[in-house]
Design a protein around this nucleic acid. Sequence first.
DNA 1: CACCAGGTAGGAT
DNA 2: ATCCTACATGGT
Length: 293
Amino acid sequence: MRQSEIIVDGLLCVLVEDLHHFDLQQIMESGQCFRIQELPVNGSNILRSHSVSWHEHVKIDTLSTPGSFIFHCNMRQMKKWSRYFNLDMDYYEMVKSILAEHPDPFLEKALEYGSGIRILRQGIYEAILAFMISQNNNISRITKSLDMMHWKYGVCRDDRGIRYNPTLLPSELVGKDFTELGLGYREQYFREMFAEDNYVHFMDWISAIVIQDYAAAKRGLMQAKGIGTKVADCICLYGLHHMEAYPIDTWMKKLIENVYDGHFDVTPYQKCAGYVQQLQFYYYRSLGGENHA
DNA sequence: CACCAGGTAGGAT
DNA sequence: ATCCTACATGGT
């Protein structure tokens, strides 16, 4: 991967080349992140364009030259996005080499089908909000609730004169009522978590979790109401980048039942289990569910 | 107008 | 330990 500064429309941007196994469309569709949007495209050498909201906001153009992208930010911000998208570590090759020793036709197809997927580092706050909302819910409502929450309670900041919805910090959520966000019965979970008289405990709880290993972090997370095994695994994986986490939801249950005859051994994939789960999940959903492929 | 959604808590086997 | 079910809403 090479990075260089260029000027686009009078603004400093970063041109990234030779970046492979990175496809924002796939990442957006993979269901790990609800805050990426596809934008209308105007440039002729631009294949797709996306906007990503996190601590900051960035527009990314996918160029027609394979492996080439334009990140609309400066080099300093690019460092953060590089970490966010996990651009330095390519789990594709890791799974490829494990597959050589543990043949798995389904996973092989899943790897090729979703080869552009990366596991993001969304941070614990973003992950808690997104995946507590995600339980027994559908994607479009999850996205809507999250967006409304950010617009209603978030403080807007930027250095380019563009209004955007930033990451919410606990300090911005303490004592809020969470009504009118369409959260349904999950509303109560948030009210408990961000109750004013729980703030000190909340911050202690978080600061312990972020320095613990996967097993301890998962146990800790599950102490909160509204966080069970699956949501805890998602927070560990997409928030804290614990790659051992292997979230099992209704789709993964069906997949393991139909494709692996009720048993899938993650042991060989310990160091990239979460990535393997994403590949399986993304490919299985593309098949419509019941197909054994 | 039913049925479903990247589950969980609380209670009953 | 392992089932069962109610759960609030909006999407399809």
